[in-house]
Computed example of a mutant assay.
Amino acid sequence: MPVIRIVLSCLLLATQAATQAAAQERRPSHCIALAQETPGLSYVHKAGFRDVLPEYGVRLRYIAHASFLIQAGDISAVTDFTGFIGNVDFIPDVVTMNHAHETHWTASPDPIIPHVLPGWGPVGEGIEHHLDLGAMVVRNVSTDIRSFAGGVEPKGNSIFVFEAEGLCIAHLGHLHHEPSDDQYAALGRMDVVMAPVDGGFTMDLGSMMRVLRRVKASVVIPMHWFGDATLGRFLGGMEDDFAITFAKASEIELSLRSLPDRPTIMVLRPAYLREDE
C-alpha cells in the first residue's frame, strides 16, 4: 500500500505541477476576503442529480461515508473519491481524496477524470491545490493526521474548499485535530461545512463541536457517522446552538439567498447515484 501511495502521489504531483505552471494568476478567493453577513431564507430544495440547476444554485448530494457530489453550473466534483459513486455513467470534472484509510481514496481513479486532487503529497510536505474552473474554484488547506504507527503524519490530510455561486463550501475530510489560527485564516469564511462526526476515528465529538461552533457555518452536514446512535450523540450536543433538520432526500440545493438565518445542521441520508433518478 505505501508503494502504491508513493507512485500515485508522484503521478498526481506531476500533473499538479503542470497545472500550477499554466495558471500563474489566481482569481482572488471570496471566501478568504472579509464578508458581510448575508441574511437568508430557511429553505432547501429537493432535487435529482441529473436535474438542471437553478441560477445561482449549488447542489450537494451525500453519496456515502465521506463522499459528496457537489454541482455548480456545468461543473461537478466528488469528495473523498473511492472509485465508486453508483451504477451511473457519470464522470465528475474533479475528484478529491484523502488517504487516512481506503474508504477515502483510490489508487486507480478513472484516467478520463479531468482533475484528480490528492489531499496529501510527499510525507511531511503536504500539497497545494488551487484549481479554477470558472464555475467552481477548488482549493485545499493541509492538516495533520495520525499515522498507522501511532505517530503523526504532518500535512497528510486536506480540508478542501469549493467556491461556487458565491458560496464557500468546506469538506473537512478525515480531520484529526482542531485547525490552528493560521489554518482557520487560510480556510476563510465557510457557509456550508461537511463534518465527520464519528467521535473517534477522526476527532472526539467535543473537539469537533468546538470546531463547528468557531466556524459558524450557516449549514453543517454530518458525515462519517456509523449508525443513528453516533449521529444522535452529535446532534444532542449541538441542539442548543444549531437548528436541526432532516432532509427528505440525499440531495439539497442551496444558494446565498437560501441560507438559513440560524445556523442549521442538515442531516442527509447517504445514497449512491442511480440511473433511474
Rank of each mutant, 00 (worst) to 15 (best):
I91E: 08
P92Q: 00
D93M: 06
V94A: 05
V94K: 01
V95C: 06
T96D: 08
T96C: 10
N98C: 12
N98H: 09
H99S: 14
H99P: 09
A100V: 05
H101G: 06
H101N: 14
E102W: 14
H104V: 07
W105V: 08
S108P: 09
P109H: 05
P109A: 05
P109V: 01
P111R: 13
I112N: 14
I113Q: 02
L117D: 03
G119I: 00
G119N: 07
G121C: 07
G121A: 08
V123Q: 14
G124Q: 11
G124W: 11
E125G: 11
G126F: 01
G126P: 08
G126D: 06
E128N: 06
E128T: 06
E128Y: 06
H129N: 01
L131P: 02
G134W: 07
G134A: 10
A135C: 13
A135W: 09
V137D: 05
V138F: 05
N140K: 08
V141T: 10
V141K: 06
S142Q: 12
T143Q: 11
D144I: 00
F148S: 15
G151F: 10
F160G: 10
F160A: 09
V161W: 04
F162V: 03
F162E: 02
F162Y: 15
A164Q: 04
E165I: 00
G166T: 01
G166Y: 03
C168H: 02
L175A: 11
H176D: 11
H177W: 07
E178S: 11
P179R: 08
S180A: 11
D181I: 09
D181N: 14
D181P: 08
D182K: 13
Q183W: 03
Q183C: 03
A186S: 09
L187S: 07
L187F: 11
R189L: 13
D191Y: 02
D191A: 04
V192Q: 00
V193T: 07
M194A: 12
P196W: 03
P196C: 11
V197N: 07
D198P: 09
D198V: 01
G199L: 00
G199M: 01
T202N: 14
M203P: 03
